[in-house]
Amino acid sequence: HNLTITQGKLFFHYNPKLCLSEIHKMEEVSGTKGRQERNDIALKTNGDQASCENELLKFSYIRTSFDKILLRWEPYWPPDFRDLLGFMLFYKEAPYQNVTEFDGQDACGSNSWTVVDIDPPLRSNDPKSQNHPGWLMRGLKPWTQYAIFVKTLVTFSDERRTYGAKSDIIYVQTDATNPSVPLDPISVSNSSSQIILKWKPPSDPNGNITHYLVFWERQAEDSELFELDYCLKGLKLPSRTWSPPFESEDSQKHNQSEYEDSAGECCSCPKTDSQILKELEESSFRKTFEDYLHNVVFVPRKTSSGTGAEDPRPSRKRRSLGDVGNVTVAVPTVAAFPNTSSTSVPTSPEEHRPFEKVVNKESLVISGLRHFTGYRIELQACNQDTPEERCSVAAYVSARTMPEAKADDIVGPVTHEIFENNVVHLMWQEPKEPNGLIVLYEVSYRRYGDEELHLCVSRKHFALERGCRLRGLSPGNYSVRIRATSLAGNGSWTEPTYFYVTDYLDVPSNIA
């Protein structure tokens, strides 16, 4: 807008934040220059609390790290170098490059900038070799853009010569660093050979998330399962459950009422301010606690030095998902009996873990797994792929695949051998790939016309006998059925096997 004052003059007093240069501009645009008398524009009460600059400061050096910015700028000295009290560095987070010096300023003089007072450097006698002032900004957020400017702080001049310097606002972004852990990993099994893994992005990506790394490792069953005799009275049979499938998407929606109208769909109840505040506090606490764990609990591995020492970490090797089922080394339970199943799973520490690289999504279907087997899954978020990966501390989750139908069934015939004193040795093959492992066998036998009897055969007993022995049988026709019990439950009964026990007292003698 054009402003013209045809008559009258300007009068400025007691404006401590208004620089004289701005008042002189007002004289020019209003056409009143030359009308004012000496005392109409006070030299001592206008701009006496402001830094009124008329020179431009330029930054000469900028260096960044993930949490620091090192700045240096060209030296500046007023005509009387004693008038320079120091520099004021202003900075704040700036997602967009549209910041002005006066953003967030209120009537009390406060604003949204963080201000650092910096002492002037030592003055050199040689004007050509003056030290460049600077400042190291610490405690910054990774991968965050900051708006920065600097200006001088000078003393009051009796001659009211307006001098000083100020830089333009520059924008500097800190470097990326390792992201925080992925949030809320959930693993479920939808079949006997697959596990579905879902997660949420890290709360602090500290860069642009480029991919996720998912490692999985087959877990050995508890050692007590191999040692305890679950045929003993009072000892509860062990059981394991597989990871249940995901709930429906509708039930997972946030901010939804727990109660549904019987007449149909209901609208979600909005969260109160107290609920939102509580969630923010919980989120802040979780982030602080995660940072504490990362800094205190997890110790970084030592990389190899120039002395030739090897990095103890196993090298990563990509495998196809079809090879995942046989990740671990199978060892027989008892070496003397080769027909026992290889369900003991000690994992070799030198073995390469299978892994998958996930790009542009937060889910993965891990296939080719062994049925009813526990897996430990390790999830890392990465925001750099080359020249070397920059990934987060791992988040861990466990899951067990679903049982395989008929995996616990005894394959092959049940054979028998009759000894003296009416002892019958029953023999059968253990299931080759049971659900988890076989903890015991149930032997059901009966003599024709009598009630059915049951015998429990422990895992250890089966390994020693290759089956079991029935003792003290009365003469007669017998039928026997056997079924295995694994961590997933009972298998199917075998087809009945028949044998006849004679009275050993009636056996004919070869003595003449």
Rank of each mutant, 00 (worst) to 15 (best):
243 S>G: 09
339 N>W: 07
351 E>M: 07
374 G>I: 04
268 S>T: 15
489 G>C: 02
264 G>A: 11
212 Y>T: 13
377 I>M: 05
203 S>R: 07
206 N>Q: 02
238 P>Y: 06
285 F>M: 03
400 R>P: 02
398 S>Y: 15
272 T>K: 07
493 W>Y: 12
216 W>M: 11
307 T>R: 13
488 A>T: 14
389 E>G: 07
354 P>I: 14
421 N>V: 13
396 Y>R: 04
367 S>M: 14
471 R>I: 05
272 T>H: 11
338 P>D: 10
425 H>F: 12
435 N>R: 01
437 L>D: 10
406 K>I: 05
208 N>K: 15
248 S>E: 00
208 N>V: 07
411 V>R: 08
310 E>L: 08
477 N>E: 06
347 T>E: 15
470 L>P: 01
268 S>V: 08
439 V>E: 04
247 E>S: 11
332 P>G: 06
324 V>G: 11
478 Y>F: 09
252 Q>N: 02
203 S>K: 15
476 G>V: 01
288 T>A: 04
258 E>W: 12
408 D>T: 07
337 F>A: 08
461 H>P: 06
221 E>M: 10
215 F>K: 05
354 P>Y: 13
495 E>C: 13
460 K>T: 14
343 T>W: 04
387 P>W: 11
322 G>M: 10
368 G>D: 09
343 T>L: 11
261 D>G: 02
443 V>F: 01
336 A>Q: 15
461 H>E: 05
495 E>P: 07
243 S>E: 05
488 A>V: 11
302 K>N: 14
238 P>W: 12
398 S>A: 07
337 F>H: 10
504 Y>I: 06
421 N>G: 12
227 E>S: 10
406 K>V: 12
415 T>G: 10
291 D>E: 03
470 L>R: 01
233 K>R: 10
361 K>W: 08
399 A>Q: 03
296 V>M: 10
229 D>F: 11
266 C>N: 08
452 E>H: 15
280 L>V: 15
412 G>F: 09
375 Y>W: 14
380 Q>K: 11
468 C>E: 01
449 G>V: 00
345 V>D: 07
355 F>M: 11
418 I>T: 14
437 L>A: 07
254 H>L: 12
262 S>M: 11
249 E>T: 14
422 N>G: 11
301 R>P: 00
360 N>H: 15
424 V>E: 10
263 A>D: 14
305 S>T: 13
279 E>F: 02
373 T>H: 12
326 N>W: 10
455 L>G: 06
313 R>T: 14
383 N>P: 01
309 A>G: 12
288 T>Y: 14
285 F>D: 02
